[in-house]
Simulated assay, not measured.
Amino acid sequence: MTITDEARRALERQQTVEITTTGRRSGRAQRIETWRYRAAGRYWLTGSPGRRDWYANVLAHPEFTLHLTDRDLRVRGRAVTDPDERARVFGEIVPGLGWAGSLESWLAGSPLVEIQFG
């Protein structure tokens, strides 16, 4: 799906989002709340360092639903594993988070998924 201007404005207004992924083993829908970030002109899902079930689900089943207050968007997740790309994106995200800890810890242990719309 291509994101409309209206949907993009809605996404800009909402940092806390919910996503529904498909369970990697169960195949069942799994809905959770998470934060979206904006860096390099694109939208991302990540979290503080640690294991995330939603990330494992996106690796197994890249298509998921991004739930905003007034709409649901079918999107695709692109896992970012390239060290240089991770450094660029986290270099924009992490410094703005006062609670985040070190950039190095995020690079070493945080999932990073680009939200793709088309």
Rank of each mutant, 00 (worst) to 15 (best):
I3G: 05
I3Y: 07
A7W: 03
A7P: 06
L11Q: 09
R13H: 07
Q14T: 14
Q14G: 14
Q15E: 15
I19H: 05
T20K: 08
T21D: 12
G23T: 03
R24D: 05
R25E: 11
I32W: 09
T34D: 02
T34H: 01
R38L: 06
R38D: 09
R42Y: 05
W44P: 02
W44M: 04
W44T: 07
L45V: 05
L45G: 01
T46D: 00
D53T: 13
N57T: 01
V58D: 11
L59A: 12
A60Y: 08
E63L: 10
F64S: 12
T65C: 04
L66Y: 12
H67Q: 04
D72F: 04
D72L: 03
G77S: 11
R78H: 10
A79N: 15
V80R: 04
V80H: 03
P83A: 09
P83D: 11
E85V: 07
A87Q: 15
A87K: 14
V89D: 06
G91R: 08
G91D: 08
E92G: 03
E92I: 02
L97V: 12
G98Q: 10
G98W: 10
L103F: 05
A108Q: 14
P111W: 01
P111V: 01
L112M: 10
V113M: 03
I115L: 12
I115T: 04
F117C: 12
G118I: 00
